[in-house]
Design a protein around this nucleic acid. Structure first.
Lengths: 221, 221
DNA sequence: ACCTGAACACCGTTCAAGT
DNA sequence: ACCTGAACACCGTTCAAGT
């Protein structure tokens, strides 16, 4: 199959563009202008070829985005020094994945693609699962615990990223702001009282607090 | 402005289509065929009009999707009887939102739009925040707690929904399956040992377990 | 084996004009 | 006030043919 990344032994025509070219320029477009600007046509133009030439090196746009994510993970996801305490190891491993993914806004489109991203990230998954077991969970509960951590992490990134995008795009106040502006204090007293500080409170980065709470809860039960 | 939903006093030409018509047919398309089949052109055709007529009743596609979500929430999100224990109230309120959103797969496209969905859902948010305070958290920590619960909930729905979509679309084994098939037991022993049961374990619905763990952890700290 | 041209079957949205 | 026609500026992907 022509999709293999192994170098050909030139039995046919020499290739003008490579998979690496494609991923490289795709990475440039995506980091400079965002994921929505990455189109097969645009990419072909930038790489100095035609849209159809791309389909000879990549199965389609979806595979391209997955390759891009793997490439990004390999490039930026480095193994941190882990603390001694197993519980802290879980927190540090999860936070490492989180921070790397949160730093690249274009990830959103691909993030939910699969429940884990690349071979590079598996080491982190191993640490999380293994140390949850170390803390006393059964392997089954450890996997479920990892899933919960991943849901929390992915959700944080996705919700924050699209909220940020909305803020950048829109000029007008958000839907939330309009709704919070006229809350009925009789019906929803707690929210009415907090409405003035809601934006400020939700802008705070409390990922690690929530993560710690979740890990604590997983280990307590 | 022409976008108001208040009935006009017929000062001009009588309207052939209404906002309700539009939302109604949009709902039908989306529930019958999925969110990706909902296009302005298709919707116009189905409603017996032209694409441009829609823009007289709705600001654009994004607003349409938001209206659709509000409509869905009002229709299906009913207030449950809450238990006595404040901690259990938080769990029940969060799970109620979760179950309603998880039941409609087209939600994914809109879900991350804002951090809360509609006026209807605010009652649930109120319950969560209020009962977290009842359990001893400061209002600030209660809001952060609500956010953590929302991240976990949104993440669960998004990740599961796209995983399900992938399973439906793709014929081939997923990327995860291919990676898990040849894990190095030397490097990643825990995952290698679990690889055979991974699919089965992650298919289990453990939303409520994770939610309980998170709430416990939030209240313990 | 690798690449191209032309085409298919679409998108969301704007503008100027009609009734 | 409400609606239409035509157009703008795009998409991802397939097919048949070229070198």
């Amino acid at each position: 199959m022509s999709h293999s990344s192994a170098p050909r032994k030139t039995p046919g025509r020499p290739a003008r563009i490579s998979r690496e070219d494609i991923i490289g320029t795709a990475r440039r477009i995506v980091t400079e202008e965002g994921a929505d600007r990455l189109t097969m046509r645009r990419l072909a133009q930038e790489v100095g070829s035609t849209p159809m030439a791309l389909y000879h090196h990549v199965r389609g746009k979806e595979e391209l985005l997955l390759l891009l994510l793997n490439d990004y993970a390999e490039r930026t996801l480095h193994r941190p020094a882990l603390p001694d305490q197993p519980r802290e190891r879980v927190v540090v491993a999860a936070a490492a994945i989180h921070d790397v993914l949160a730093a690249c806004p274009w990830i959103v489109e691909v993030l939910t693609a699969d429940d884990l991203m690349s071979t590079t990230a598996l080491w982190f998954v191993e640490q999380i699962v293994d140390n949850l077991v170390e803390c006393g969970l059964t392997p089954e509960r450890a996997v479920h615990g990892y899933r919960a951590i991943w849901y929390y992490t992915a959700g944080e990134i996705l919700v924050r990223a699209t909220a940020a995008r909305r803020r950048a795009t829109d000029d007008q106040p958000t839907y939330r702001e309009r709704v919070f502006a006229d809350l009925d204090p009789g019906e929803l007293p707690r929210l009415a009282r907090l409405s003035g500080r809601w934006a400020e409170l939700t802008a705070e980065d409390t990922y690690r607090d929530g993560l710690r709470a979740l890990v604590d809860g997983l280990l307590a039960s």
